[in-house]
């Protein structure tokens, strides 16, 4: 279904993620990279080409929201802690304040078995099957604070849940992403998370799903290059203002489509 030629022009995928976040007793999935897409009608190229930084926040918050993705039969109380990582749009080079996604760890993961699904993604030449476990992170639109008024987030940027992929028929594939902020990320990678849009209720505000069919797979590089801290940054999202020290990256995000469970 996805011929190589279709994806030859696919701009690299990828992104960088930062470092292992020493969180409680365990490290965070240290690095995430995100995205990309291009041809093949996945979405507009600039809409989802990201680098993901992860890092150690100066302080973490606890927050509780209600969420519902297509995998949830009903709204779920979702306890969050973070932010633990940030995905940065590839538009960093074009815009002063590109859109971000802030990654919050879900402190009360539920529904360990989310079924078997078939995925197609923009980096893979053929569909593959995955078993989904619990959702580990909630990703919410964010902005980076520098100086001056930050630009508004893209109006069609959703909130996502990142479901862990416990089993996959996908063989390791080569991924690469060149990002002005973090350089080139490349290497063999396997799918780690499937991110699906969610509806969220937070206090008296409801965030509906804007692009229900837009999902993405987060690949993890098998042998990521070691990198020094990249930067310190301040972000703002629906939960407040946060400072992060960004470190390495080993995760790359790729636009995907999800088909019905087996």
């Amino acid at each position: 279904m996805f011929g190589k030629s279709k994806f030859a022009s696919l701009a690299a995928v990828a992104a960088i993620l930062l470092g292992a976040v020493a969180y409680a007793t365990k490290l965070l999935p240290a690095k995430v990279i995100q995205i990309t897409e291009d041809s093949a009608g996945w979405s507009k190229a600039d809409d989802f080409r990201w680098v993901v930084l992860s890092g150690d926040p100066a302080s973490k918050i606890f927050h509780t929201v209600d969420t519902k993705s297509r995998l949830d039969e009903k709204r779920k109380v979702t306890s969050l802690r973070g932010p633990m990582a940030l995905s940065i749009s590839h538009r960093e080079e074009k815009e002063k304040t590109p859109p971000y996604l802030a990654w919050y760890r879900i402190a009360n993961p539920t529904q360990d078995d989310n079924g078997s699904w078939t995925l197609e993604d923009a980096a893979n030449s053929k569909p593959y099957a995955v078993d989904l476990a619990a959702a580990s992170f909630l990703l919410t639109p964010a902005k980076r604070l520098t100086s001056g008024t930050p630009k508004k987030e893209p109006s069609d940027l959703d909130i996502f849940k990142a479901y862990e992929i416990s089993e996959s028929s996908c063989e390791p594939i080569e991924l690469q992403l060149d990002h002005p902020l973090v350089g080139t990320m490349a290497g063999k990678a396997t799918p780690k998370y499937l991110c699906m849009p969610v509806e969220e209720s937070h206090h008296d505000e409801v965030f509906p799903i804007k692009k229900p069919d837009f999902c993405f797979v987060v690949y993890e590089l098998i042998n990521p290059a070691e990198k020094e801290n990249i930067m310190s940054l301040t972000s703002i999202d629906q939960f407040g203002i946060h400072s992060l020290s960004a470190t390495q990256s080993s995760l790359i995000c790729v636009p995907a489509r999800v088909h019905s469970p087996h």
């Binding site: 980076r144 604070l145 100086s147 001056g148 008024t149 301040t234 407040g240 203002i241 400072s243």
Partner: peptide, 15 residues
């Protein structure tokens, strides 16, 4: 907003 900090007059928002 200056250098990543939100300022209210000369006060910095710390939380």
């Amino acid at each position: 907003v200056k250098d990543g900090s939100v300022m209210i007059n000369k006060a910095k928002v710390v939380k």
